[in-house]
């Protein structure tokens, strides 16, 4: 419990520093949002009025303070580009990204563990070597390319979904998730291959340990040793990489969103950077940073659950 409180305090402090960095970065980088909003022909007066309107003339500290207070209240400010609240802008994008991330993570969990264990179990057999070659190939395929292939095969040839015809969750929930299956697979498959490789390595490393020999000396079968004794130990390093991947997935995949025409966070981020729509970019940066920090916190907690030795030290 004490550990949890400590963890949350560090989390808050980390987020505080991230918010400073996210805020300051956009004060320093070149390019004037007012100019990109009004165009190059804007008069001096127009620019000044716009600056005033956007609150850009206030001192730095006050602007930061206002911004953070706004964030805490759920008021993310006004988009420079669209002139609507950032919150409204994000409202439509988050469900898409969350649904995509959720589906991707579900795919990963459902496939990575059985496949990794299968691979480890038969690593020295012929089937294991064949599996290794396939796995390594899949690992090397970039998500966007996989996305294109999936679109081609399942979209254009088999017509399981209509490429580019995104169905909003407001229209039909089943249609929405149906459409997301293909992009989720495109993101999940190479990552799954990586986790499979990682899990297999970890299992094989664990196999060298003395406690495995002890387990066999008690009369355990190969499978029981694997599932009862090795698995939990082997998961400890895998959790780290899994955490990193989940954070990455939660941030939204720009490329895959582009390939499948999904109106997610990734695409909004790219568009906002191009338009120098800083309030939007800042909020997305904070979101991504917070996701990474929170997922890492969860990983730390998971560690303690998996490894009793860590529990005692703290």
């Amino acid at each position: 419990m004490k550990f949890m409180i400590k963890k949350i305090i560090t989390l808050v402090i980390t987020l505080f520093f991230i918010s400073i960095a996210a805020f300051l970065a956009f004060q320093i980088i070149p390019g004037d949002p007012v100019l990109s909003l009004l165009g190059m022909e804007a008069t001096e007066g127009q620019i000044e009025a716009m600056r005033e309107q956007l609150g850009l003339n206030e001192p730095l500290l006050i602007r930061y303070g206002n911004w953070v207070l706004g964030l805490l209240k759920g008021d993310f400010g006004l988009s420079y580009h669209y002139q609507i609240p950032v919150a409204n802008l994000l409202k439509d994008k988050f469900p898409v990204t969350f649904a995509l991330a959720g589906l991707t993570i579900l795919f990963m969990f459902l496939s990575a563990f059985p496949l990794g264990l299968f691979y480890a179990r038969f690593a020295e057999k012929k089937i294991g070597r064949v599996f290794q070659i396939i796995n390594q190939t899949i690992m090397a395929i970039p998500s966007f390319f996989l996305g294109i292939i999936i679109t081609l095969i399942f979209g254009l040839l088999l017509k399981w979904f209509t490429p580019g015809k995104y169905i909003s969750y407001t229209e039909s929930l089943t249609g929405f998730f149906g459409y997301l299956i293909a992009p989720a697979a495109a993101i999940a498959i190479p990552k799954t291959a990586m986790i499979v490789k990682f899990l297999q390595n970890s299992v094989l490393a664990q196999r060298q340990n003395d406690y495995v020999r002890t387990a066999f000396s008690k009369g355990n079968t190969e499978n029981r040793v694997l599932y009862v004794h090795i698995l939990k130990n082997a998961c400890i390093p895998v959790v780290t990489i899994l955490g990193m991947m989940i954070a990455e997935i939660m941030a939204g995949s720009i490329v895959v969103e582009q390939v499948f025409g999904l109106p997610g966070l990734g695409r909004l981020l790219v568009a906002s950077i191009e338009a120098r729509d800083y309030p939007v970019v800042q909020v997305i940066v904070i979101y991504i940073a917070a996701t990474v920090v929170i997922v890492n916190g969860i990983v730390d907690i998971l560690y303690r659950f998996l490894d009793p030795r860590i529990r005692v030290e703290a």
């Binding site: 003395d210 020999r213 000396s217 008690k218 009369g219 939990k232 130990n233 998996l306 009793p308």
Partner: peptide, 20 residues
């Protein structure tokens, strides 16, 4: 194994499963 013939090993720390 484990029923009629059992075995104990040199390093009791590493010979026991650390997470069980």
């Amino acid at each position: 194994r484990g029923k009629k013939i059992s075995m104990i090993f040199q390093e009791p720390m590493t010979s026991l499963n650390p997470v069980m």
